[in-house]
Simulated assay, not measured.
Amino acid sequence: MTTPSYVARRGELEAYFDRTAVEAWKRLTSDAPVNRIRATVRAGRDAMRETLLSWLPQDLHGLRILDAGCGTGALAIEAARRGADVVAVDLSATLISLAQERAPSDLSGRVSFAVGDLLDPAFGQFDYVVAMDSLIHYEGADIARTLAALAPRVGGSLIFTIAPRTPALTVMHAVGQLFPRGNRSPAIAPISIGRLAQNMRMHASLNDWDVAQTEEIFSGFYISQAVEARRS
């Protein structure tokens, strides 16, 4: 079940990535030159993507993966190269269009791109769900509700990122609020692993799930924490 806060934030993200951030996101997720700040973000995202992919089996043949909040599709493509059948979903029609343009033609049968909500049950069952930097904008309670809704549809693990509650990230967030509202990205919602676990324990469908491993990635203006949740 979605909440008003989830729906409101989902709308903000859709509007931001479909209109405000289109050109910046195209450059950030390509090999085009970027300024020093964005270069650190690019490097951090590359490192995070490699981390999340390393938590999946090396051989993904016969496995079905949901790339939840796929953006321009880089993670989905790498998973497909390793044999997975990937459903790559994003709220932004603009980003999905870009992902389709960039997808290698030889992988067209392994990756299905779709505009939509990652919680849509019509996408079916999966062996793994990966959500890279798509839940960092939601409050902890909504992250837990999202995981609880996905858990019954996942045979393996839930792999996602959160915004860690660190002094450095707090400062960056405060500085970001100084920019004109039209230039701001949607706010992130830092949360500790302990608080996330508490929120997860409030849902029956997550009673047999535990946080199995975590890893923080720090790269200049990119700070994010990878989390894998598995059934105990």
Rank of each mutant, 00 (worst) to 15 (best):
A103G: 06
A197Q: 12
A131V: 06
W55H: 11
I217V: 12
G11C: 05
P104K: 03
A114R: 15
L107R: 05
T51N: 05
V115R: 05
F17R: 02
A174F: 07
S105N: 12
P190N: 05
L60G: 00
R42A: 06
G176D: 09
I193K: 04
I217Q: 00
D120W: 03
I65N: 03
D31R: 12
Y128P: 01
S97G: 14
E23M: 08
L53G: 05
R110T: 05
D120H: 07
S224F: 02
L95K: 05
M48R: 02
V175L: 15
L53Q: 10
A144W: 00
Y222A: 01
V130F: 05
G155S: 15
G83H: 00
T146F: 06
P57E: 09
S185R: 11
A32K: 13
H61E: 14
G69E: 04
R181K: 15
L178R: 13
R153W: 08
M200N: 05
R102K: 15
F179R: 15
L13E: 07
A74P: 01
Y222C: 01
E101Y: 04
M202V: 13
P167G: 09
R45K: 12
L196S: 06
L66M: 13
V154G: 08
E216W: 01
G11K: 11
E50C: 09
G109Q: 14
A88V: 06
A151I: 01
H137R: 07
R145P: 00
V115K: 02
L98R: 13
E216H: 04
D106F: 10
Y16R: 07
R195Y: 04
A99H: 01
D142K: 02
H61C: 12
M132H: 10
A168Q: 14
A144F: 01
S205R: 07
E101K: 13
Q225E: 14
T3C: 11
A131G: 11
G124A: 04
G182M: 12
A189S: 15
G156H: 10
R10A: 14
N183F: 13
I188L: 12
A168C: 04
H203I: 08
V34I: 14
V171K: 13
L150Y: 07
R231M: 11
A80L: 07
E78L: 10
